[in-house]
Design a protein around this nucleic acid. Structure first.
Lengths: 203, 203
DNA sequence: AGGATTTTGGACTTGATGCCCGTTATCTTA
DNA sequence: TAAGATAACGGGCATCAAGTCCAAAATCCT
């Protein structure tokens, strides 16, 4: 029979295989870290033929990429909610921060695997955040206020700082609760480090 | 003859080998990126037996690590010079910024290879910067002004932001000159993003 | 010059990748 | 529920890099 053009309901076997592969990858990340994982490992653990793996994904990175995309939707949703809320610019901006801190705390093992692991996951998350921040800046800042600092510069600055802080926080076992790290990050980002340094040292 | 205890002048063969290996690694980074380099590549290009490589280093990362340490001294030196200079806290702090931007511009190919390449180089540079910033904060901030924000949090924040900005800048071909990016970074870091956002949008 | 040390190059093992293909299991749909 | 389509299996195969080892040759140091 000819394939229907718009959208075929996905074969259950395909769905099952892909699902299993994703879950297995995650569990292996927790167990041995991303880098150390081999495609053999994944297939063996998942009870999936290696040929089958290659029928769906071209590499470990490919599997990872495809599996991490749902994180984006979570963040985007919450972001939208935060944007809708009225409030001072101080509270309205950087909406992803608390969300991601909390998500990381709730799935701490997974996130530790991600950050501890390869560049791939970090890169994807980085990109997702960059998109969010970019959108936020576009909605927040006035078009005419274009200063000497390129928009993208600010985006990279914020995302870089956030990723570093998130990683550090996870490495320490997510010690201070999300709301607190969130507050620290926001303050640092919006007010700058001068406020921190000069507190007891205003010359 | 018995080995002298304190310090033996290094065998010329050893020095030559190690030197060649380092230079070769760098040139290969520029040509094909760090990740894609194989130990075979290095040895072939360097005209060094593969056995010899393993007699000196245990891995590609090992070679990289040992080779990048001189960058540290460059930065540390300039940092010291900057620290000695009198001046407002705004100019005295973040001394590494301009230095590294300039170094990156002068060795742009190398730096592009580094950042474009593996996690290793980035990690090392990150660590070097973290040490610098940590030292700087310790010298700058008053002990008693310890706020709710851990010192290390600020360090990670700054370094993360800087690395991201540096990478972005290099990817764009180091377009705005070092002094300008440096100024942008400093301003963002010390004054925060609020100053930027609110410029034309003070509600 | 001569003993010490390094370099060499090739052989060997191990293990991962990626691909192929005939067989078997499972799904879809009519 | 039976038939035809499709996916999964699994074993084999070629390729390549990582490491290790060793005897012979080259180079260095004093």
């Amino acid at each position: 029979m000819v394939m229907q053009m718009t959208k075929m309901s996905i074969d259950r076997r395909v769905a099952r295989t892909r699902d299993t592969l994703h879950q297995t990858l995650m569990s292996l990340i927790l167990k041995q870290g991303y880098e150390a994982i081999t495609i053999r490992d994944i297939c063996d653990t998942a009870n999936v033929g290696r040929s089958t793996f290659y029928a769906h994904y071209t590499s470990k990175d490919d599997l990872m990429r495809s599996g991490i995309e749902n994180l984006r939707s979570v963040l985007v949703d919450r972001q939208r909610a935060a944007q809708a809320n009225p409030g001072d610019i101080r509270h309205r901006s950087l909406g992803f921060s608390l969300t991601l801190f909390e998500h990381a705390r709730d799935h701490i093992d997974l996130h530790r695997g991600l950050v501890g692991g390869g560049t791939v996951a970090l890169g994807i998350i980085r990109q997702i955040l960059a998109d969010l921040v970019r959108g936020e800046l576009a909605a927040t800042v006035d078009k005419k206020s274009e200063g000497a600092t390129p928009r993208e510069f600010v985006v990279q600055y914020i995302v870089g700082a956030y990723m570093a802080v998130l990683t550090w926080w996870l490495d320490r076992g997510a010690k201070p609760p999300p709301t607190e790290v969130d507050a620290m990050f926001r303050r640092l980002a919006t007010d700058g480090i001068l406020a921190h340094l000069a507190e007891g040292d205003r010359s």
